[in-house]
Write a protein that binds this DNA or RNA. Structure first.
Lengths: 146, 146
DNA sequence: GGCAAACCTTCCGGCGACTGGACAGTCGTG
DNA sequence: CACGACTGTCCAGTCGCCGGAAGGTTTGCC
């Protein structure tokens, strides 16, 4: 099958497949006489593995490691678990950050609607105005997840 | 003050300050005779505003809009709230995605440790093996937040 | 056989929000 | 006047792709 068919069956964009080949996540495909990449069911499996792992938020690097373990008959379950656990820890961190941001934003929005402060205080807070007791809800140093 | 001092006082990296100027988030600084950028307290305020807003996860584009509203005397609180609410909605979406990922990962990890399945099933799940009832926990199509 | 549509190829550039590094000029101090 | 700390510009890289250009191939239809 050609790359387009593989893309359709795997749910991975053809461009992305070429990219994965380029960065070595999947092996370079064999070429037909016309120079087109040729794929088999085996490659489809591998690509679906990649898609699912990416869908769970694993980095390409992690996926690469998981693929290696998948192809390694002498693998240890603990290695796989370690990668998964580390990933869960990262996700936890991101969730905590986002929840914290959401809390602060909701506080700001709420105080903006209430009548207990003169104007919408979001901007004042961001500007670091000392209208309150100096405790600005927006004075955060968390790293922004992008 | 020079850019280094501004960086120290604002908590924003000097490189980042130059970058902000380049993309127009902050106005181009005046230069001294030596070509160095010169800043005043006003610029420090602006930059702290930016830092706080970024800390709350606002995109640079949003921050730009917030800054414009901040400098607009005829601004409406509702405009600011709208930006903040939209941002909260985005954050909510990301949180939901991450929580969903975490759930699936934890299920996989758990079933990997338990004795009710032969081997660590994470890899089998990712490979899409039909060892179970065909419902693979990892068969997700959620977009990965990067 | 001719033509268009739908494939496929490679290469380049851009997204967001920076960060690091190279190389050069400038400033303050000993 | 040498040295280090600072500043300037410019370019490249990060991550995980995606879009488009310019070209070759295949397929299907008249």
């Amino acid at each position: 099958m050609n790359i387009g068919e593989l893309a359709r069956q795997s749910g991975v964009n053809a461009k992305t497949i070429r990219y994965y080949e380029e960065i070595g996540l999947i092996p370079a495909a064999h070429r037909g006489d016309n120079g087109y990449r040729r794929y088999r069911t085996q490659d489809l499996n591998r690509l679906q593995f990649v898609r699912r792992a990416r869908g769970l938020g694993f980095s390409v690097e992690d996926v690469s490691a998981l693929l290696a373990l998948y192809n390694d008959r002498s693998r240890h379950s603990s290695d796989v678990r370690a990668i998964a656990r580390r990933h869960v820890a990262e996700i936890d961190g991101k969730i905590r950050e986002l929840v914290s941001m959401r809390e602060m934003l909701n506080e700001l929005i709420e105080s903006c609607q209430g009548d207990h402060r003169p104007e919408c205080p979001i901007l004042q807070d961001l500007a670091g105005a000392d209208t309150d007791a100096g405790t600005s809800a927006a004075d955060v140093r968390t790293k922004v997840p992008t």
